[in-house]
Amino acid sequence: MAQILLHKDILKDAARIHLTRATVTSQRPKSLHSHDFYEIFWVQNGQVRHYCPDGITTLSEGDLCFLQPGQMHALQGRGEHALVVSLCIHPDTVAALAERHPALQGHLFWAAAPLVQHHRDMRQLATLNHAAVALERSDRSALQAEAFLLPLCADLTADCGPDTAPDWLNRACNAAKDPAVFREGAAGFVALTGKAHPHVSRSMRKYYDQTPSDFVNALRMTHAARALITDSDPVSTIAAEIGIPNMSHFHKLFRAAHGRTPLQYRQSYQRQLVQPLT
């Protein structure tokens, strides 16, 4: 019979979150276990095998998993230095976040799948570990739990696309927000994935309901709109910076995205906040 871990046995003295750091042995797990709480764990060092009812996945440093209550799983280390950080989170804390932040629906703990996986690069992992240290030093109250969870959830929700999409595609879509990438258009985005253009196009249509060109142009227009109301650069300069020096094409894309010309958009939204007119 599978072991079921209970939050009442882990969360003591009104704590709403508990952090554990553990070296994962290379011994094959005898069975899977589940729990009545939400769990986040990430691989801090080395590699681990993640056992679930539908198969085994190898996780590496920076891989991050969100698990819902009732999810069956187990871990096995690969090598001598497999280190995992795990968080036990009270169900009421997760419910409160979802109630106040509807944008979380469909992502992370609130996805249709009981297990969602993401990846943190070296910089992001360092930020995550810094937050984990602060959490360890806190009283792990509801306030401290949210202080840890909200920045992480906001970051991952902003970064990720559909949780059903392949990790390589979500990573590319997130990286494409960099002007150095979207400035190169769809070709630059496809090159970022390391996949063939037809495969990327099919995947984008399936998971994002967009072509690579539509996706990249949406990023360009969002960047242009922000620049129009925060900078005083000429429209032609902004267009060239996002990789569309053809002003006719830029105006067409911008009007389609925002319903007005770039100049009309700037006049409507730009306000003098530093030295307002009296």
Rank of each mutant, 00 (worst) to 15 (best):
H118Q: 09
E146H: 14
Q124S: 09
V133K: 09
D155N: 04
A98H: 14
A132S: 08
A175L: 06
D139R: 15
L108M: 04
Q105C: 11
A142S: 15
D159T: 02
R171C: 08
A95T: 04
A95K: 04
C153Q: 02
L115R: 00
A187M: 04
T127L: 15
P166A: 07
H130K: 09
A113E: 02
D159K: 03
C160L: 07
L169R: 01
L149F: 12
R120N: 03
V116E: 00
A96L: 08
L97G: 05
C173K: 00
E184H: 13
F148A: 10
T127H: 10
A96Q: 08
L97E: 07
N129H: 04
A147D: 15
C160R: 01
N129Q: 10
K177A: 03
D139A: 14
A111Q: 01
A187I: 07
T127P: 05
A126S: 14
T127W: 12
R140F: 14
A154W: 15
A111H: 01
H118M: 04
E184I: 11
A187E: 06
G106W: 13
A172N: 01
H101S: 13
Q124K: 05
P102G: 08
R183V: 07
P162L: 06
C160I: 09
R171I: 03
A158D: 04
E136W: 13
D155P: 01
A145I: 07
A132C: 08
Q105S: 12
H130A: 12
A113S: 07
A145V: 04
D155Y: 14
L104Q: 02
A154E: 13
R100W: 10
L152V: 13
A132D: 09
C153D: 00
D121V: 12
R100C: 07
G161F: 10
H101R: 15
A103G: 05
E99I: 04
S138D: 03
P179D: 02
D167G: 06
A176I: 00
F182Q: 02
A134M: 13
P166K: 07
L104C: 08
L150I: 12
L152G: 05
R183W: 09
A158K: 05
T157Q: 00
A98N: 13
K177E: 02
S138L: 06
V181E: 03
P114S: 11
C160P: 02
T164D: 03
D121K: 02
A113K: 06
H119S: 05
H118C: 07
D163E: 02
C160Y: 14
G161K: 00
H101Y: 15
D121Y: 09
L152M: 12
A172G: 03
A142Y: 14
K177R: 04
P179A: 00
A154H: 11
D167K: 08
A98Y: 14
D178P: 00
C160W: 14
R183L: 03
R123F: 14
E136D: 12
L152I: 13
E146T: 12
Q124W: 12
A96G: 08
H101G: 10
A176Y: 03
A165R: 02
A172C: 05
R137V: 11
R100F: 06
A172H: 01
R137Y: 15
R171H: 09
Q144T: 10
T157R: 01
E99G: 06
M122K: 07
E146D: 09
V116D: 00
A176P: 00
A187D: 07
